[in-house]
Simulated assay, not measured.
Amino acid sequence: MSTPRFLNLPPGVEPRKIETPQGTFAALDALPMSGVVERWTALLVPGLTGSKEDFLAILQTLVQSGRRVVAIDLRGQYETPGPDDPAAYSCAALGADIDLLAQELGDGEPIHLVGHSFGGLVAREAVIDGRTKFASFTLMSSGPAAIVGRRARHARRLMEEIPEKGLEYVWHARFEPEAMTADVPDDILAFLRKRLLANSPVGLASMSEQVLTMRDRIDELRQIEVPTLVLYGEHDDGWPAETQSEMAAALGSDYTVVPGAAHSPAVEAPETTAAALVRFWNEAESRSLDKRSNVM
C-alpha cells in the first residue's frame, strides 16, 4: 500500500523514538533547514484519537522561525506503546510523561508546550504539577473541564464500546462512516484506520473517560507564571468558542480565534495557526529575556 500523500514528510522532519525513564515515545522531529536552532524548542501534544501526524501541516512553517519542533504520540497512542492498565492513562500520568519529554528535549532550557483538545488537558497537568518550567503553554481547541456536545457523545461511545466490541467495530461503526461522508481520500482513510487500530484499546477507552470527567483547573493554572495562549477555530465543535474565550479571560491570557477553522486548526488553517504560534512564542521568549536582563 502506498504512503498517504500527506505523510510524505517535509524536508527537515524525521521520525524519531524518544527514550525516557517511563518508556519510548514515537515522535516527528523537525529542525530548521539551516540546521541551526536559534530559539527554544516546542513540544506538540495531540488529541484523543489523534497522533503526531495531526501537526504535519504546520511543522515546516514553525521551524522556519529558527526552532526545533517535536510532535509526539501519547502513551498508548498510535506508534507509542502503552500498558493494559487504565491508571496509566489518567491525565496526571500522561502529564508526567510530558514532563519527562520536556526535560529530555529542553536539555536545561525551557520549552514551549502546545496541547490540542484532550492533549491540552494532559499538557495542563504538566504545567500545573510544577516539575518542569515551560517557556509558554498553548491550549489549542481545548477547554477548562470535560468536553461537551457532539464530541462528548462520541467519547462516551468510545468508552462504552471499545471494552465490549473492540477497535475494529468502532472503526466500522463510527469512524469509517464519518470519513466516508466527508469524502476523505482513500489513502488518508487507510491511514486513519491503521492509526485507530494501532491504539491501545485500554488506553483509548480510559482517555475517553478522562475527557468526559475532567474537572475545571483554571484557578490552579492561573497561579502558574507561564505565558499562556488560548487558540481555537471559530467553528469549534468540541468546547464551544464562548467557553474557550471565557477561559482565556479567566486566565488573563492571550487568545487567537482562527477564521474558518473548527476543532483542528493545525489541519484546517495551518498557515494562520502556525503564524499565531510563532508570534506568541517569540513574544514569550522576548519577555523571558527581558526578565533575565532586569534580574542581572
Rank of each mutant, 00 (worst) to 15 (best):
R156D: 15
P259K: 11
P81Q: 13
F118L: 12
G47D: 06
M159T: 11
D219V: 14
G238D: 08
A135N: 03
Q210M: 10
A26S: 15
C91Q: 05
R39S: 01
T132D: 01
L59T: 10
D254Y: 04
E38L: 15
P259I: 13
V258L: 08
W40A: 09
L197V: 07
R222H: 03
G166K: 05
L192H: 07
E209M: 13
A27N: 06
T181V: 15
V69W: 00
S293Q: 10
V278P: 09
D73V: 12
D219P: 06
E268T: 08
V63A: 13
M247Q: 09
Y232E: 05
R215A: 14
V148W: 01
E125V: 07
I58D: 06
R5G: 08
P83T: 14
R157D: 07
E19S: 12
V278G: 05
P227G: 05
V37M: 09
Y232D: 06
D99M: 04
Q244V: 13
V63M: 12
E176S: 01
D54C: 13
A42L: 07
D236L: 12
A135H: 00
P144I: 03
R195F: 02
T80G: 05
S206V: 13
E161A: 13
E109S: 11
R67H: 06
T41M: 07
G115S: 07
R287V: 06
D129C: 14
I218E: 12
V257G: 08
S141Q: 01
V257L: 09
R195M: 14
R153L: 14
S264E: 00
P163K: 10
T3S: 10
P227C: 05
D97Q: 03
F191N: 10
M33V: 14
D84P: 00
R195G: 15
E178M: 09
D107G: 13
D219E: 15
M1K: 09
R222D: 00
L212N: 11
E79V: 14
L167W: 01
R5H: 14
L139H: 00
H235V: 10
H154F: 10
G95E: 02
D85G: 12
F175I: 14
T41C: 13
P4T: 03
I58G: 03
L48D: 02
R131V: 07
D237R: 15
D107A: 14
S136C: 02
E285S: 02
D85S: 13
F137R: 01
L277R: 02
P4W: 07
L100Q: 09
S51E: 11
A57Y: 01
A42K: 04
E234L: 04
I147L: 05
G166Y: 09
R193Q: 08
A274V: 12
W171C: 10
S253Y: 04
V114K: 03
K133P: 00
A71C: 09
W239D: 11
L251D: 04
S141T: 06
L277D: 02
L31V: 15
E125T: 04
V37E: 10
E164I: 15
R279H: 07
A155L: 06
A241W: 05
T20Y: 11
I147D: 02
E220D: 08
P177H: 00
V202M: 12
E242S: 15
E271K: 05
V230G: 04
L56C: 09
A102W: 01
S142W: 02
R16A: 15
